[in-house]
Design a protein around this nucleic acid. Structure first.
Lengths: 194, 194, 194, 194
DNA sequence: CATGAATGAGTCTTCATTCAT
DNA sequence: TATGAATGAAGACTCATTCAT
């Protein structure tokens, strides 16, 4: 497996996002993904160990970009409050920009066995670390109380954002997502402060 | 289908929870559930339309009890703040009481197709309505600002609680869940109040 | 697996012999065997663990009968010489009676991996034991010299008979096999006696 | 196809023997043989028509040398008895010298379809002719009775030697093979004479 | 001559569901 | 109601072979 890189690799990942978003993971046969990517079935296996590996790689690839972009944005901000806002907005923005990806991350990717779920959590760790760092810095700077349990607060933040996105996906993207960044930020910041 | 009622009906539901928690959704064959319930494979189909129907019924049954118990508790409280606390605590308590059920609701039940997921959301609506009513009453009583978007706030609340429970399940119930009710309540109430 | 017994079990074994003899092991798809046996593909797996297990079971079943019949015949003889003749004749006779089985045992069954081959040798052990007992008795009775290495002699005997049968199969049963019992017996007995 | 000759041709044959002996025929993919031979997969097809052709060529090549060497040895002998002994000893010796080749000829090469088996028999014909000539000469010289059926006797001889070698391979070469030449010779010569 | 990325036909096995008893 | 033997559709994966470079 010459994994990672190569336009075929990218093509298969993109095809997978499209096919899985449209049909759901369990109705996304490897042959369907191959067809969408305009490669032979067997070619898939030159780039991925098995079907599950497509899913993992997809998540790694997309989540990597996701975290990268978020980081870049955050680095330009100094205020903790704005950093938190930026994080929320970027989260909503990036998923709103790619409806298919949103469907896959919010719905289809959860349809997985314990093993895959652990893999996903591993990948997710980077992003959660990003939230943590904001919280820790916030405590240092006195924006959040010293008593704040960062790990716990991070769960609340992530859970809230995630649920808002999931609802948006479930409602079939009927409304705009990014404008929800402000009320989300208000509520979370308020909840954390004092 | 003589659906609903009959001890075999209950036995199959309980067997399903046990088997799915132990083996994961995709390794929980109908025959395995039948064996655990001490009935023949075919008997399953006298009580359930198909395999998916077991899942839906399981969720209806357990969620029905869940909501019922929560309602009863909440009715005994008058203060909005305490109602919200009660809701959170009951949520955590009931899932902590039944580890298998927690695994099924937090992890395995999400491994489903769009159709089943819609069914689940239908069932969930009752519970979300419970949260809504607290929020609406809170606005009326002036505990929450009139500007509060109940639907949105409910997503934040549910998302936060849900994520906390999911984390607990993923960490294999290594710590106690109910004590997290207080910090959760503090944070959420704070976030809502303003 | 309710293995062993049941007319379906027998039907599948017999179908397998027929299909494998006609098409060769590697072109005998499970579905082809199922069709020949007039059962569904899945039914095969109620009686056999996997495709290879059909082959093993086939050999166990047929070889069991083969050895059983040979034993019964041998028990009726007292003279060592005649016992050896009976063994050879029965060997040739039983395979001549069932051309398909002969093809399978002489050709197709050898197309197997080390693991299966060991299984086959296990099954074969009974038959080789039969040869051994004749040789040991022969030494006791003074028909064969005390210096006779039974294990070695058995290999020579089995190898000779086996090769004669294989040649007959390769020549597509163009001539009669049983008449070869006498010259085979002459040669082997002569070779052993000294 | 520039078949026959070229060091790559030899390298591929030798790689095939090694790989097949180590992994068994069915786990010896063309790519594995190519790797072992340090050539590209496609290069195989410059020297061999297809995978099966590797096997046939392997057998032709090795068997050719085998027969050649045996012939040379036999030509130095005049006595029929010694010729038979030489043949047996050379057979055992050459296979004992190359364990991998022995595995391939005794076990893996039998895992083939009818077509390939016929090809192999064709190649084998030369060797069987060698045995025949000893028998025919033996009859002429009066060492064997005029009634001897050479074709039949050859099967017995070949079957006996072959089985002895196969047993040795199956027992994973735990004992020495060449010393069995004498008892084999004794037994076979005795059986033929009279 | 040599390469090796790409192809795609081919098949074993699982398991939800049925139905004769 | 209850049984469980039987069904058969469906799909991931392998690997011999090709061909553009």
């Amino acid at each position: 497996m010459g994994k990672k890189r190569g336009q075929k690799y990218e093509a298969i990942i993109d095809a997978a996002v499209k096919v899985i978003a449209a049909n759901g993971y369990h109705h996304s046969q490897v042959s369907k993904i191959a067809k969408e990517a305009s490669v032979a079935d067997g070619t898939i296996y030159l780039y991925f160990k098995n079907k599950e590996d497509i899913l993992i790689s997809l998540f790694e690839e997309k989540m990597g970009q996701f975290v990268q972009k978020s980081k870049e944005k955050l680095d330009k901000e100094v205020s903790i409050e704005k950093k938190l806002f930026m994080l929320i907005e970027m989260h909503l923005m990036q998923l709103e920009e790619d409806h298919n990806l949103a469907i896959v991350t919010q719905l289809e990717l959860r349809q997985s066995n314990k093993q895959l779920r652990n893999k996903i959590n591993e990948v997710l760790r980077d992003y959660l670390g990003l939230i943590d760092s904001i919280l820790v810095d916030g405590v240092k700077e006195g924006v959040f109380p010293a008593s704040l349990n960062a790990r716990f607060a991070r769960q609340v933040i992530f859970g809230a954002i995630d649920e808002v996105v999931t609802n948006w996906v479930m409602k079939e993207h009927k409304y705009e997502l990014v404008p929800l960044a402000k009320p989300l930020h208000d509520m979370l910041l308020n909840g954390l402060k004092k």
